[in-house]
C-alpha cells in the first residue's frame, strides 16, 4: 500500500518533468512576443531572460524549479509578476466549486438514469447519450448559451458552466453505467437468483449493483480527467473566472511557472483520485489481491 502511494508520488514528479520538457522544446518563450516590439532593445530582453534563468538548458531549470517547489515556492507569473500560488489559488477555488458538484451530480444523474433504463431494458437512451458524449463542449455550451439568452437567465451566474460540465460528464458515465448494469442483469448468478424468486429490491442491492459497480469504479479517475479537460474549455467559453481562462492564457503567453503549477496540481488530483478508486475497488471486490504473490 505504501509502495503504491510512493509510486503515485513518483508519477506526479514524472508528470511535472514531462510537462517541463515538452514546454521547453516548443519554440519561443515568454519574451518572444516582446521582441517584435519596436520600443524594446534586443539587449534588454536578453538581460530579462538571463535574470529569469530562461537562457539555461531545461534540465537545469527543472532542477531549480523542483528545488524551489520543495521550499514551497512555485515560482512567479511572468505576465502578472505575482507569486503563482497567489494567482492560482483563488482561481482553483472558483473552478472547484463548479467542477466537483457538477462532477458528482453528473454521476448521480447518470447512474440513476442508467439503472432505470437498464431495468426497463430501454435501448433508446443509449444512442442519444452516445451522440451527446461525442459532441464537443463548444457546441454544447453554445446551445446552452442560446437557451440562456432565450430564457433571459443572467449569464454571469455559475449555471452555464455547471450545466455544461454536467452535460459533458453525464453521457460518458451513463454509457458505461448502462452497459455495466445491463451486463450484470444478464449474468448467470443474477438470473439464477432471480429464478429463485428473490424480492426485486434484494436482487438489485445484493446481486446486480455490486456486479455493476465494479467497472464503474475504474471510471472515477478517467471521468474526473474528462471533467477537468472539459471545464478548461467550458470556463473559457462561458467567461467563468476559474482556472480555465488563466491556464489557456498562460499557455499562449508561455507563462511557464503558471502552466507548470497547474499541470502538476491537476496531475496530483488525478493520481490521487485513481489511487482512491483502486482502494475502493480493492475493498469492494473480494477477488482482488494487492500482493503480486497472490497469483492471477
Amino acid at each position: 500500500m505504501i509502495r503504491r502511494a510512493l509510486a503515485s508520488l513518483l508519477q506526479i514528479v514524472a508528470i511535472s518533468a514531462i510537462a517541463f520538457f515538452l514546454f521547453s522544446v516548443a519554440p519561443g518563450d515568454f519574451y518572444s512576443a516582446e521582441r517584435l516590439s519596436p520600443q524594446l532593445h534586443g539587449r534588454s530582453i536578453e538581460q530579462w531572460r538571463a535574470a529569469r534563468g530562461l537562457d539555461r538548458p531545461w534540465p537545469v531549470r527543472y532542477a531549480r524549479w523542483i528545488e524551489s517547489c520543495a521550499r514551497g515556492d512555485f515560482g512567479t507569473s511572468l505576465a502578472y509578476g505575482i507569486p503563482v500560488t497567489r494567482l492560482v489559488a483563488p482561481r482553483v477555488v472558483r473552478s472547484a466549486v463548479i467542477l466537483f458538484p457538477a462532477w458528482i451530480f453528473g454521476w448521480i444523474v447518470a447512474v440513476c438514469t442508467a439503472a432505470w433504463a437498464a431495468r426497463r431494458r430501454d435501448r433508446m437512451l443509449e444512442p442519444a447519450m452516445t451522440i451527446l458524449n461525442m459532441s464537443p463542449e463548444v457546441i454544447v455550451v453554445s446551445v446552452l448559451l442560446w437557451i440562456g439568452v432565450a430564457l433571459r437567465i443572467p449569464l454571469e451566474r455559475a449555471w452555464l458552466p455547471s450545466m455544461g460540465l454536467i452535460l459533458a460528464i453525464a453521457p460518458l458515465v451513463f454509457i458505461h453505467a448502462f452497459r455495466a448494469v445491463s451486463e450484470a442483469q444478464s449474468a448467470n448468478f443474477v438470473r439464477i437468483a432471480a429464478s429463485r424468486g428473490i424480492a426485486s429490491r434484494r436482487l438489485w442491492i445484493r446481486f446486480i449493483l455490486p456486479a455493476a459497480a465494479n467497472p464503474l469504479i475504474s471510471l472515477i479517475g478517467p471521468s474526473l480527467a474528462a471533467a477537468i479537460g472539459s471545464s478548461l474549455v467550458i470556463e473559457a467559453m462561458s467567461g467563468w473566472p476559474g482556472l480555465g481562462p488563466l491556464f489557456l492564457e498562460a499557455v499562449q503567453s508561455r507563462d511557464y511557472d503558471v502552466v507548470q503549477a497547474v499541470v502538476v496540481m491537476l496531475g496530483a488530483v488525478l493520481t490521487f483520485t485513481n489511487l482512491a478508486a483502486d482502494l475502493i475497488l480493492y475493498r469492494l471486490d473480494p477477488r482482488i489481491h494487492l500482493n503480486t504473490d497472490g497469483a492471477h
Binding site: 449474468a187 448467470n188 443474477v190 437468483a193 456486479a211 469492494l284 473480494p286
Partner: peptide, 11 residues
C-alpha cells in the same frame, strides 16, 4: 445448475 463457477455471486 450444473455449472458452478458463474452461478454464484462473486461478491
Amino acid at each position: 445448475p450444473q455449472e458452478a463457477t458463474h452461478s454464484l455471486s462473486p461478491f
